[in-house]
């Protein structure tokens, strides 16, 4: 700092960057502000930025607008089960694709590729009919088992497994390790970053999912949080935005808290999944 020359260009850049950052965060701040306003404040012009006295009551009112304990419980069960099930199925499959050669491998791998490409929006009608035939429609299963095979996860993990040197596997075989032990003690510990990425990805996408529960459920008792919050729009009419935003803040809150603590890991995971 020999010369205290004020660099206008640089500071302009910093200010513009902060302004851009705000542009993407502002709606959530505005959501929070609205959630604490009175109905009168929400209708005023110019808008009230900071509520005169925070209306915590809005949250109580939002949470009374539906069985939110059940919604939350359903969301947790659904996402938790999906992740566990996916891991159990994905790891052996990724290992087989990475380390064995067998007849029909391109075909099976092609099937996985297809599963990756075909969106649920295409298959939901037949899957619904199928699950209805199995008598599962009034349970949480339709929101879990269709996601048992995580094709994206299989790709990513296979890629990761392939980078693990063959010598390590051979070494373990010479150490008389069973295939199970080899996967459990060597492959899994060595692929922790990939597994964390997949788990995080799976969590975010299923916690936030709206379409699938919407078309699979017809009763409140099996619906997740996203549907519950969206339903506030109907129950609170089109004027009680303060209550809707309070409910919305409840939905966004947990994700933002997780993000605040793990933003670096999450960002890295998403970048990783995007580049591979």
């Amino acid at each position: 700092m020999k010369r205290m020359e004020f660099n206008y260009g640089r500071w302009l850049g910093v200010i513009l960057k902060i302004a851009m950052g705000l542009f993407f965060i502002f709606p959530f701040l505005w959501m929070l502000s609205t959630a604490l306003q009175t109905l009168k404040e929400t209708l005023s012009f110019p808008p009230v930025w900071i509520p005169a006295s925070p209306q915590w009551d809005n949250f109580v009112r939002a949470m009374n607008g539906g069985p939110f304990a059940i919604y939350a419980k359903n969301s947790l069960i659904i996402t938790g089960s999906i992740i566990v099930l996916q891991f159990l199925i994905m790891i052996p499959a990724a290992y087989a694709f990475a380390k064995y050669s067998f007849v029909g491998k391109p075909l099976f791998f092609g099937m996985t590729l297809l599963a990756f490409m075909i969106p649920t929006q295409v298959t939901f009608i037949p899957v619904y009919l199928l699950l209805a035939d199995w008598g599962l429609i009034r349970t949480l299963w339709p929101q879990i088992i269709p996601f048992m095979t995580n094709a994206f996860g299989i790709f990513l993990l296979r890629q990761y497994f392939m980078q693990i040197p063959q010598e390590l596997i051979e070494s373990a075989k010479l150490d008389n390790a069973t295939e199970f032990k080899l996967i459990w003690r060597i492959m899994i510990p060595m692929s922790r970053p990939a597994l964390a990425t997949i788990a995080l990805f799976s969590f975010v996408s299923h916690w936030n999912d709206y379409f699938w529960p919407l078309v699979m459920t017809d009763s409140v008792s099996i619906r997740p949080l996203t549907l519950g919050i969206a339903a506030l729009k109907e129950t609170e009419g089109i004027t009680n935005w303060h209550v809707i935003m309070a409910g919305n803040a409840v939905l966004v809150g947990p994700i933002l808290v997780v993000y605040a603590f793990f933003s670096r890991q999450i960002v890295r995971a998403f970048v990783y999944s995007g580049i591979k």
């Binding site: 040197p165 010598e167 390590l168 051979e170 075989k173 010479l174 150490d175 008389n176």
Partner: peptide, 15 residues
């Protein structure tokens, strides 16, 4: 199987 032959191996990259 390799593990049952009573042999041990040291690899180039140590593995």
């Amino acid at each position: 199987a390799p593990g049952q032959r009573g042999v041990a191996m040291v690899f180039q990259n140590y593995a």
